[in-house]
């Protein structure tokens, strides 16, 4: 990998330069919580000043820029007995600034499903290939457990990845696009001092992880504890509201709906992200629901994340960002559930 540094002033110039002709997405704050802390989300930036480089965690992950919550897959012109189908998956390029290592790793996991499987998904592929990702390191929050999920660092899946080393950003370059962007604005070669500073920052970040989740035996536990009352206990709290899956950087379950216009001459096939926690997720025609109970649906969300995905791709689907834990009003977090499953949770 190639490395460079860029001063904060030049970084500003860079983003403003990109912004002139491109859509730039970044962490922005619009609301504050009851304690006065900012609530962040990834939105389109209108100026550099809106970009919050010291943001903590976005409420929702930026996955919707790759897997939109709602997306038209095809349109149809209906006529008499037949129809013509039109499929489009061209999108405008855009830049996402400030993605965390866990979110980039989340994309790598989605790539496994959407790009590297038997049926590549052209819609995802178009978005993935036309999005420039500028990553940003941060000091772990109280409840980040990406370290345990092995997603606290990103080695690929981005174009540029920046670490704040004081006056400058230390930048890892992982694509030709990233290299070209950086070269158009004043960047410097990495000096000995920069390297020392970078090592120091990395060391500091690594020493600050407070939350650990031991998942070594979790895949087996998922089967061994399948009938455990742990699931019932957490399931009783679950609102079956799907918030966890919506904010999750890797949950990709979806549904297809078709719609027709009022003149009955145009139809649309639409994909909408769904959640396995929602009541009718597994209901088949005729009304039989394969998962009628909340705790069973909750269990399967964990089963897919920590067992099913491991079997298919040798890694957990979870990246340890704890967004689901934060978004869950009932206080269901992966750390608590898994600790309970292992039997280390203090009751």
């Amino acid at each position: 990998m190639l490395f460079k540094t860029i001063t904060k002033e030049n970084f500003r110039n860079m983003i403003e330069g990109i912004m002139e002709n491109n859509e730039v997405i970044g962490p922005k704050s619009r609301d504050r919580d009851t304690k006065g802390a900012k609530i962040y989300r990834f939105l389109k930036l209108n100026s550099f000043d809106e970009l919050e480089m010291d943001y903590t965690r976005s409420y929702s992950s930026p996955k919707n820029y790759f897997l939109p919550f709602k997306e038209d897959l095809a349109t149809y012109d209906l006529r008499d007995t037949g129809w013509e189908q039109e499929i489009r998956y061209t999108i405008h390029p855009r830049i996402i600034v400030g993605m965390r290592a866990c979110d980039i790793n989340a994309l790598l996991k989605l790539d496994q499903v959407m790009l590297k499987s038997q049926y590549p998904n052209p819609y995802y592929s178009a978005r993935r290939r036309n999005t420039v990702i500028i990553g940003l390191d941060h000091e772990p929050l109280e409840d980040c457990f990406c370290r345990s999920m092995n997603t606290d660092t990103a080695f690929h899946g981005f174009d540029l990845f920046m670490t704040d080393i004081g006056e400058k950003y230390f930048v890892a370059i992982n694509s030709d696009t990233g290299y070209m962007i950086l070269n158009r604005f004043d960047s410097c070669e990495v000096g000995e001092e920069d390297q020392l500073l970078y090592k120091e920052v990395r060391g500091r970040i690594e020493s600050k992880f407070k939350t650990q989740v031991d998942i070594t035996i979790v895949p087996e536990l998922m089967d061994l504890e399948f009938e455990s009352d742990v699931w019932k206990r957490w399931g009783d709290k679950c609102l079956s509201c799907g918030s966890c899956a919506m904010v999750c950087p890797t949950c990709y379950c979806y549904g297809i709906e078709e719609d027709i216009d009022l003149n009955f001459d145009k139809a649309t096939k639409r994909r909408f992200l769904y959640s396995c926690n929602l009541l009718d997720f597994a209901t088949v025609a005729g009304g039989h629901n394969f998962r009628p109970e909340a705790h069973i649906r909750l269990k399967y969300r964990y089963y897919h994340q920590f067992r099913g995905f491991v079997e298919a791709f040798n890694q957990s689907l979870c990246v340890g960002c704890n967004r689901c834990g934060k978004a869950c009003l009932a206080g269901i977090s992966p750390k608590a559930v898994i600790d309970d499953l292992i039997g280390t949770e203090k009751r």
Binding site: G255, I256, T283
Partner: peptide, 24 residues
Amino acid sequence: LERRMHCGMGKCCRCNVGSTFTCL
């Protein structure tokens, strides 16, 4: 086996059974 399916390509997860997908 029969399950709910939306994609047939192992993407939508609707037909998930155990650790795998009914469609794939």
